[in-house]
Write a protein that binds this DNA or RNA. Structure first.
Length: 635
RNA sequence: GCACCCGUAGCUCAAUGGAUAGAGCAACUGACUUCUAAUCAGUAGGCUGGGGGUUCGAGUCCCUCCGGGUGCGCCA
């Protein structure tokens, strides 16, 4: 349909460009709310009317006169509502078009996208907040791959940060050998981190000790360094394990320690100084500091402190510039992990080693999936650094893929046995806090989902083999979780509650899975020779009006797959795809409930229905794979 | 103070400036001897926080007020 729309836009533009002063981009199409208004519609007469002071309906009628003989896929082109031009496809056109073009490849964009997501501090197990980040980022990456961009997924590791120093300080009464014996280190550290945070709060002596530990980690002094290095790596492995359960994978792990040791900031600073983005502040309060001006809020942000150390944002600037290919320096790389099933490797940066050729970094578009609270800093990076360094229009761009936090409902906090202050209990939701230990661990949530779906599976098939049941339960759990994490628009806070997250009915991942599982089940019951695409034998006039109407809605919906995915990427809203998939499934369920397929006796009608569900199956599989929702073998 | 986000059905959320504001949950009614009831059909539920404005057309854009939340550090 995308090609159809493009084609139509060009023809329309050619027909009217001499008479009206418009650009091809002004012509947009939408699908009208009611089929009596046709299957495609444009409001171009209104747009022209605004510019040229002529009645929209007069313009519309003129346009229709010009184009009506040039477009043979339509049976009718009508003016309605005072200026809408409504197009009516010839009966059967769309179905044939979809079947014939079902394997059409999306054009290669020759454009490298880097998506940074997950980026969890490597000092404790992952929680639901991190899951939202990873699910959004992974879905975005999968969408970009579907649209045929070159995509590289990076996960940034703040291995020298204060959070790691916190837990190392808390572990200093152990030696490395003892730490290596701890089972489930990430989960152990979860509790330790909460304890440590409590101890450090308001105790300056402890904080001074912790700061010393932090310094030793940065300077690679043992045993602090070796302990921190071990912890960061073990926790990272645990994050990779959890994310892999959800089908989330990475290409490259970038360590902050390597950015520091390779002194990336020096190269970044030289470039920024050269074009005066970064300069010494004249503000007496910021004497001796290098700053960047944030024009929108008229603020000077400190990048280099008066003691010559680089701030948090300074390091991120260096990393962002490297990601966008704005300087030549590169990391060294080695393999960190190999995925058993595909044999694909995750690489990790290093600061020394063999100087081999790798193609990491150098993205034309660089997405950073990070919470909305970081907007201020991310805006500085994209507006004040990357943009000025990319003078040609959209040559390089850094995009903050922003989302709101996952919070807990007060009820949920109480359910989990945390104490809740009177103040918090009045709020609509309570912030997740790794520091306080108030959060739902990713592992625990997944386990709860698996247990619940296993119950449901066994309820439906008491004789099912244990291993098979577990496999299916896991698929359902993953589907439920991933869908839950992306179905809300990213600007709304998710007030997490087990009741909603554990739901398997209605607007949920399992609903989508169920739709496809049933289609597969129907197809299994057909003979092989029946279950084939064949566009020549689709005589839709055989269908009664009601069936034709519902079938047509599904076809229109199917035709929008690529358009919807593009829209999701453009709007930075992966929920667009989730909602789209859900309505497609609703229509499909409605359809095959009313019109049986296997038992249909009229062979031509049966053939039409089979071709429809074959199309739905193909598109739905694509959509689910984009959202990382697995397809269970049965439900 | 400056910058930003949110407010839509009882609850959780949808809706490129477009035609009659839609789903799910909860409630109520109905459909399993039928290709899988994790489904489907139906009933009920709305001054889209209030007030102005722009527009042929506003839940959507602008202004203002009310209510809720966030960011603005030589922390990360």
């Amino acid at each position: 349909m995308k090609y159809l729309q493009q084609d139509l836009r060009e023809k329309l533009y050619d027909a009217i460009k001499d008479e009206y002063d418009i650009k091809p981009g002004d012509i947009a199409f939408s699908i009208p709310p009611d089929r009596k208004f046709g299957c495609l519609s444009t409001t171009i007469p209104f747009i022209i009317a605004k510019k040229q002071k002529e009645k929209p309906f007069l313009i519309g009628n003129k346009i229709i006169e010009k184009i009506k003989d040039r477009l043979d896929m339509f049976s009718e082109i009508k003016l309605a509502g005072g200026g809408f031009i409504n197009f009516y496809f010839k009966k059967g056109f769309l179905f044939k078009y979809l079947v014939e073009n079902r394997d059409r490849q999306i054009k290669n964009k020759n454009h490298k996208m880097i998506v940074e997501h997950t980026s969890i501090n490597p000092n404790k197990a992952a929680h639901i907040g991190h899951l939202r980040n990873a699910c959004l980022g992974d879905t975005l990456a999968k969408m970009l791959r579907y649209l045929n961009y070159e995509v590289e997924v990076q996960n940034y590791l703040d291995d020298t940060g204060i959070q790691v120093a916190d837990v190392v300080w808390g572990m200093m009464h152990y030696n490395l050998e003892e730490i290596k014996k701890i089972k489930g280190l990430a989960s152990y550290l979860w509790h330790l981190y909460a304890d440590v945070s409590k101890q450090l709060a308001g105790n300056d002596e402890f904080k001074a000790e912790r700061n010393l530990v932090h310094q030793k980690i940065e300077d690679k002094i043992d045993p602090e360094y070796e302990i921190s290095d071990y912890i960061a790596q073990e926790v990272l492995k645990d994050h990779i394990r959890v994310m892999d359960i959800l089908g989330i994978r990475y290409d490259l792990l970038v360590r902050e320690s390597d950015i520091i040791h390779l002194d990336f900031f020096k190269d970044a600073a030289e470039i920024m100084e050269r074009i005066n983005i970064m300069y010494p502040s004249k503000d007496p309060e910021k004497e001796g500091c290098q700053v960047i001006k944030y024009k929108k809020e008229n603020i000077e942000k400190i990048i280099v402190r008066s003691n010559n150390t680089v701030t948090y944002i300074g390091k991120d600037i260096a990393y962002s510039m490297w990601k966008a290919g704005l300087f030549d320096k590169d990391f060294f790389y080695s393999t960190f992990h190999t995925y058993a099933d595909t044999g694909k490797e995750i690489f990790i940066t290093g600061s020394e080693g063999e100087d081999k050729e790798f193609n990491f970094g150098g993205g034309r578009t660089v997405y950073n999936v990070i919470g909305v609270r970081q907007s201020y800093l991310q805006n500085i990076i994209s507006q004040e650094v990357i943009e000025p360094l990319s003078p040609e229009e959209s040559e390089r761009e850094a995009i903050h893929f922003s989302y709101e936090m996952v919070a807990l409902t007060p009820r949920c906090v109480e359910e989990m046995g945390f104490e809740i202050s009177a103040e918090d209990s009045k709020k609509p939701h309570v912030d997740v806090s790794g520091r306080k230990g108030i959060a739902v661990k990713a592992d625990d949530l997944i386990e709860k989902l698996v247990v619940k779906s296993l119950q449901e599976v066994k309820l439906r098939d008491p004789d099912i083999a244990e291993e098979r049941a577990r496999r299916i339960a896991k698929d359902i759990a993953v589907g439920a979780l991933r869908y839950f994490m992306i179905k809300f628009s990213s600007s709304s806070v998710i007030a997490f509650d087990f009741k909603d997250a554990l739901a398997f009915e209605g607007d949920t991942g399992p609903y989508l899975q169920y739709t496809l599982v049933r289609i597969n089940s129907i197809l299994r019951k057909l003979e092989d020779k029946d279950a084939v695409f064949d566009a020549r034998r689709l005589d839709l006039s055989l269908l009664e009006e009601k069936e034709y109407g519902i079938l047509y809605e599904i076809l229109l919906s199917l035709s929008l797959l690529e358009v919807q995915v593009e829209l999701a990427v453009e709007k930075h809203e992966v929920s667009v795809a989730a909602n789209y998939t859900y309505t497609l499934c609703q229509k499909t369920n409605h359809y095959y409930h009313l019109f049986p397929i296997v038992v249909e006796e009229n062979r031509e009608i049966k053939h039409i229905r089979i071709n429809l569900i074959l199309l739905v199956k193909q598109k739905l599989e694509k959509l689910l794979s984009i959202m990382g929702i697995p397809i269970p073998e049965k439900m």
